[in-house]
Structures are given as C-alpha cells and as structure tokens.
C-alpha cells in the first residue's frame, strides 16, 4: 500500500543544501508493522513526514493506496491526513485545556461526516482503555494516558495507517510497554498498518520488519527474527 521510489529530500539552509533523504525506495504492504530505525539525523523523521503527507519529497515517487501523492493539492493532502493516516507523536501533541474526548474528536471536525462525533470519540477512547477519563484534560493525565488519548485520536477516523514518531520516547518503560502492546494489538486485531520510528532496539524488535537508515539511505531492511509480541 505504500510505495516509495527514488525519494530525495533536500533542504535549503542559507547557502548550503542539506540532503536529508537520498534515493529511498521501499514497499510497505497492508497490515505490516514496520519499525524505521537509525541514529539521530539519519532522516527518519523526514521520511515519516513524507509518509504522513505533512511534507512532499523534492523528487521521487510516493504512492499511497495507488494514489500518487505528488499530484494532490494542499486540501487533498489534508483529506488524506484526515481519513487515511493517524499520527502518534513523541510529544503527544494534544490540545491543552481541551478534554480528552474533544481532543479525540478533533479529526472528525475536519472531516465531512461530523455527525455523532462525540459518540465515536468515546468509542475510540474505550478502545484504548480510557473510557473513564474522557472528561480529563491533558494536564490531568499521565504521560502514558496522554499517549493513549493520542492513539485514540489517530484511530477515530478508522485510518488504514498509523504513523508513530518515537511514540515511547517520552514514556517510562512500563508505559512504553503498554503503548507498544496497544499498537501491536491494533496491528494484529484490526489489520491497521503501523509504521513507527524509534531508536530503541527493544521497541523496534516488536515490529515484524525493521528498516535501518543511515545518512538518508536505507542500509538494511529485514524481518525481525525472534519477534517479541508485545501482548497486553
């Protein structure tokens, strides 16, 4: 479902051109759980932004579900982000002073079908096990709980892909295990494609496949041998 071919991303910084990605090509099939790993500065986040349609490549082809992303307008990209992709960030990125349920509901407000949005948001919170805390605001929730709200927000529009950028980066080990367990479960039970960026080998080993990046190039792409299935 994700096809990357010859993706190049160059940033213009003052006079210097920085190549963040050079010639990335790979396929990710529906229902896969893939970890992108590599040292910081290797281009993981840039690749993630391109996959998430937050950014466009300088050259190369990216097709998502058979649609060439480069051909999409700004509004169409927004619609892709709204319908097909769910984001989970390292810093949770919840709206402050806004209750969990309203945060989860946010994508529905920008979609065309905004009806019974509150009900759907509550269902999504149930799925991540936070049904009881719907009215709490982010500052009243623990880090792990905030990340689960973020996952519920990613889930609410029934996306085909969840992109998780260092989802456990700000969490303690216990919460990390919970979050990874939740993601694995969504992948296994709901067949949601999951792409996650991490530099934690422990976290990476819970994926089915690891793509290793260095200096903007893929240096390794292999299935995980003795996969730890992070059940809850």
């Amino acid at each position: 479902m994700i096809q990357l071919h010859g993706i190049v991303k160059t940033y213009q910084m003052d006079q210097i051109q920085v190549q963040a990605l050079r010639n990335i090509s790979c396929h990710i099939e529906k229902g896969e759980m893939v970890a992108i790993m590599g040292p910081s500065g290797c281009g993981k986040s840039t690749l993630m932004n391109i996959l998430g349609c937050l950014d466009t490549p300088t050259s190369g082809h990216y097709s998502l579900d058979g649609v060439e992303v480069a051909m999409l307008s700004d509004s169409q990209l927004a619609e892709v982000r709204n319908k097909k992709i769910g984001f989970v960030f390292q810093k949770f990125n919840l709206l402050p002073r806004t209750s969990a349920v309203d945060n989860v509901r946010l994508p529905l407000l920008y979609g065309s079908d905004g009806n019974n949005g509150r009900k759907r948001a509550l269902e999504a919170l149930e799925r991540v096990g936070l049904g009881q805390r719907a009215g709490h605001k982010p500052n009243q929730l623990s880090g792990g709980e905030q990340q689960r709200v973020a996952i519920a927000r990613a889930l609410v529009n029934n996306p085909s892909i969840i992109l998780a950028d260092e989802p456990t980066g700000n969490l303690d080990s216990r919460s990390s295990r919970d979050i990874m367990g939740l993601l694995s479960q969504l992948n296994r039970d709901d067949r949601i494609t999951i792409v996650l960026v991490t530099h934690d080998a422990e976290v990476g080993s819970q994926a089915q496949r690891i793509i290793s990046l260095r200096d903007g190039q893929i240096i390794g792409d292999s299935p995980v041998q003795n996969r730890k299935d992070g059940g809850i």
Binding site: L54, A78, L94, L106
Partner: peptide, 12 residues
C-alpha cells in the same frame, strides 16, 4: 500544527 496534522485544511 496539530490541527493540520489531523486534517485541517488551509481554509479551516
């Protein structure tokens, strides 16, 4: 940024 990442368009 958050709003845009979950699908808010420019006009929104």
């Amino acid at each position: 940024g958050i709003r845009k990442s979950v699908g808010a368009r420019r006009q929104d």
